[in-house]
């Protein structure tokens, strides 16, 4: 038995998963294939929304919210702004002559990783790998995801948390200094 298996395996969940997965992958291909950069950025938004949906299916609701606010809300707007500001010598997002070998390398990488994924014995969380006490704790973590995540972020990983805030400040100051007119 896999832990936290609620509606998983139900027909509607399967359907939702396949719709999200298909739209995510198809729009990701569109991002790298469409020549008009503005349309490609709109497809990037569809991909980011699909990834937020995958996070919800993976019981990571907080991350889905973060994904919506940071990626769909902020980063995509930033990218669209930059595309519109640099639009006038528009020739679209063309590829250079390395396209075919690069596509081959990516395909080989994808094939190798899918082969490795499907041939690995995963140590799935469940009654075979955990004792009943740990199962109880794990079930509590799954139902109380966000408080546990807050404890992890602000206690166990607090150093990384602070360093990342300094990094963000440095990046924002650096980008301001770069684009400031002189």
């Amino acid at each position: 038995m896999i832990l936290g298996e609620g509606t998983e395996g139900a027909l509607i969940t399967e359907l939702v998963f396949w719709v999200i997965a298909l739209s995510t992958v198809v729009s990701a291909i569109a991002v790298v294939q469409i020549r008009d950069l503005f349309r490609a950025s709109l497809f990037l938004i569809v991909t980011l929304l699909g990834v937020a949906g995958l996070f919800i299916l993976l019981r990571a609701e907080f991350l889905a919210g973060v994904q919506l606010m940071v990626y769909v809300g902020a980063i995509s707007v930033l990218i669209i702004f930059a595309i519109l500001m640099t639009r006038d010598l528009e020739e679209g997002s063309t590829s250079h002559s390395f396209r075919i070998p690069v596509a081959l390398v990516s395909l080989i990488l994808m094939g190798v990783s899918i082969y490795a994924i499907s041939n690995t014995e995963w140590n799935i969380i469940g009654s075979e790998t955990l004792n009943p006490d740990q199962m109880n704790q794990a079930a509590h973590v799954f139902t109380n995801g966000i408080p546990t995540l807050a404890k992890l972020l602000l206690r166990d990983f607090v150093l990384a948390f602070e360093v990342v805030s300094v990094l963000l400040l440095a990046a924002v100051l650096g980008s301001l200094a770069l684009v400031r007119g002189r």
Binding site: V32, S93, R99
Partner: peptide, 12 residues
């Protein structure tokens, strides 16, 4: 997703 992104990052 990673493979598609790799293709785009190296070929665009």
């Amino acid at each position: 997703l990673f493979a598609i992104g790799l293709y785009g990052a190296l070929s665009k």
